[in-house]
Design a protein around this nucleic acid. Structure first.
Lengths: 214, 214
DNA sequence: TATGAACTCCCTGTTTTCAGGGATGTATTT
DNA sequence: AAATACATCCCTGAAAACAGGGAGTTCATA
């Protein structure tokens, strides 16, 4: 019995690459490829009876990213394994994924052999994380003994995003249908929370967090 | 006689993918793969007599990026073609590449077929740019009719840097031993020159130009 | 049911930024 | 000799941001 695998990546060329790597492996049957998580969720929804063993996914994709996809899959289909293959190694994302029970994480600059090893381990029921990823995860956990309790609320993120996009308080208020006082409160809270002095600091944070494009 | 191709990409998995796509094409011989431009330049330097027809390269790589690589190759080996395959579609980079006579540009989310088409065209001596890339290039050219003559003076850079570091006008004046009026003039000129509305815009520019750390 | 978190709105007063001018001196280049 | 680029400084008035308060609502959860 072959293992059924789904691959999700918005870079078709990479997808093709993965496909040709995996198609040399007789144990693996590529059920489906897609360029975002939404398509997968729909597919799983419709084909409930189909056996899916593994979903290999990128993180940054349009419509639905790999993190959301992983969360949804793990919530509803506990028997489907997930392997993230990503270019970025952002501590927070790694953290979120691990907390959401992802089965593996391999950076895109890994060797083909490592990818195959990861897939094999995961299909056996083990977890597989590249050394690089484990290091980042641990380093993050150790250095951030509860320091990183900076969590912005949805509304705060709305506001800081618009600030970084060069909008004034009044404009933001209009856009979000809020009083300008409210927006001012958010700005103030943001500055306190993030320990910055002014809009320059807020803008840098928004960029760092990828709230706006670089 | 086969075409000799070199592939440069720091994402090994992507590299493997490209390799397996191209290895199905009997006309192509993959001479070498590398994960940054430096390795290629060294290789070309040592193997001057070797026929190299095409270099396929990513843009963002450690050590030496694809833009520098293209420039160097075009300066020294006019007969080597270059094809950029990149995830990003930044107008400025596209512009620089085209000015430096790159032979093609295909985004990483292109179909395998398009990549092969691009390679074939380029080897025939034509240029190949994906529609997406052409659009970005044109859009940029049309909107930026000579706009890109933005050159900041030393003093302007001093000021914008300190602004992005969250200093007020008065603080900057003190630091640079200037009157606060002077600093205000600089800030104003900066905003006009860079076509931004406020400190958020200035900060983003300073980050983009690497005046301050990311 | 009480607590807390998130969201919303308001006030006062000060400081800074923004928008729009203008001006002088010193180089360098044409 | 004139034009240009750069650096420096000044002014006014309006708009926005900053600082430091308070306070009501809803909603989930302990």
């Amino acid at each position: 019995m072959k293992y059924n695998i789904i691959i999700v990546d918005d870079h078709k060329m990479f997808l093709d690459g993965l496909l040709s790597i995996l198609s040399n492996e007789i144990d693996y049957n590529i059920l489906l490829t897609a360029k975002n998580g939404e398509q997968i969720i729909k597919y799983l929804d419709i084909n409930k009876e189909e056996k899916v063993d593994l979903i290999i996914t990128d993180i940054s994709m349009p419509e639905m990213d790999g993190i959301t996809l992983n969360t949804l899959v793990k919530e509803h289909n506990r028997n489907i394994k997930t392997l993230v293959v990503s270019m970025h190694s952002d501590p927070d994302r790694i953290d979120t994924l691990i907390e959401n029970n992802v089965d593996g994480y391999v950076p895109k600059n890994a060797e083909k052999q490592e990818l195959l090893k990861a897939i094999k381990s995961i299909l056996k029921g083990e977890k597989y994380f590249s050394k690089e990823i484990k290091d980042i995860y641990l380093e993050n956990k150790l250095s951030n003994k509860r320091k990183e309790e900076i969590k912005l609320t949805k509304r705060e993120i709305d506001v800081i995003t618009l600030i970084a996009l060069e909008h004034t308080t009044q404009e933001i208020a209009d856009k979000l249908f809020l009083s300008k006082h409210t927006v001012e409160s958010y700005r103030k809270n943001l500055m306190t929370k993030l320990n910055v002095r002014n809009i320059a600091g807020l803008t840098k944070y928004a960029l760092k967090m990828n709230y706006i494009e670089h």
